[in-house]
Computed example of a mutant assay.
Amino acid sequence: MRWESLFDDLEAAFVAEAEAELEAEIAEAVRLERSALRFVDRLRASRGTQVQLQVAGGRRVDLRVGAVGEDWISGAEGPREVLIPAAAVQSAVGLARQGQAEASHVRRRLGITAPLRQLLRDRAQIVILGAEGVLVEGLLMEVGRDALEVLPAPRGELPRRRGAQEAVTVSLAAAVMISSA
């Protein structure tokens, strides 16, 4: 009878130890999976939801997340469509806990200049915000590899092209948010 009790105790201890080991392995696997999770993948998994971003300069952006690229986020801030460089985002509230990697090999290669070239084709009036406020407002004229050229014009007015010397060139590194009407 004592032997049977001893074996029952040993078996219970073995089962408890095996369960604890399994739980520790699962916790480690979750930690490893989370360590590989990228910010843009969490944003991509949040597509269609409302998140609050804080961007460089302290500005808070309530964004309904749209398309997400490798280095950019698009979406709606109220009635405006905005494009935000991922590097400009300092913090986020309301992101999905899981991530969603970009499935398309082609889309993975598209940087922020891809949606900007679409705005250029649409002859879009844009506003470029930097960390300290509006950098320029007007008609998008050119999209380079690391800079944009905008012909200044107040909102609602068509710019008058008087010459390239009036165009404002903005480094993409300085852009915190680009919005279009």
Rank of each mutant, 00 (worst) to 15 (best):
G138I: 09
G138V: 01
G138T: 00
L139D: 03
L139Y: 08
L139P: 01
L139Q: 05
L139C: 07
L139A: 10
L140M: 10
L140S: 01
L140A: 03
M141V: 15
M141P: 11
M141G: 06
M141I: 12
E142S: 15
E142R: 15
E142I: 11
E142N: 15
E142D: 15
E142A: 14
G144H: 10
R145E: 15
R145N: 14
R145F: 13
D146F: 08
D146R: 11
D146L: 11
D146T: 14
D146E: 14
D146I: 06
A147F: 11
L148P: 02
L148A: 08
L148D: 02
E149K: 15
E149L: 12
E149A: 14
V150L: 12
V150H: 03
V150W: 13
L151N: 02
L151A: 04
L151P: 00
L151F: 01
L151S: 00
L151E: 08
L151G: 00
P152T: 08
P152N: 08
P152Y: 03
P152V: 10
P152A: 12
A153E: 04
A153C: 00
A153F: 03
P154L: 05
P154Y: 01
P154I: 00
R155W: 10
R155M: 07
R155N: 05
R155C: 01
G156M: 12
G156W: 07
E157N: 03
E157Q: 14
E157T: 07
L158W: 10
L158N: 09
L158G: 02
P159L: 00
P159C: 02
R160L: 04
R160A: 06
R161H: 05
R161F: 06
R161Y: 06
R161P: 09
R161I: 05
R161G: 04
R161D: 13
R162S: 08
R162G: 13
R162M: 12
R162F: 14
G163R: 11
G163V: 11
G163H: 11
A164P: 04
A164W: 09
A164E: 13
A164C: 05
Q165I: 06
Q165P: 01
E166M: 10
E166C: 03
A167Y: 10
A167T: 09
A167K: 08
V168S: 03
V168I: 10
T169V: 12
V170K: 02
V170H: 07
S171Q: 09
S171I: 08
L172Q: 02
L172D: 06
A173N: 07
A173I: 01
A173F: 12
A173C: 04
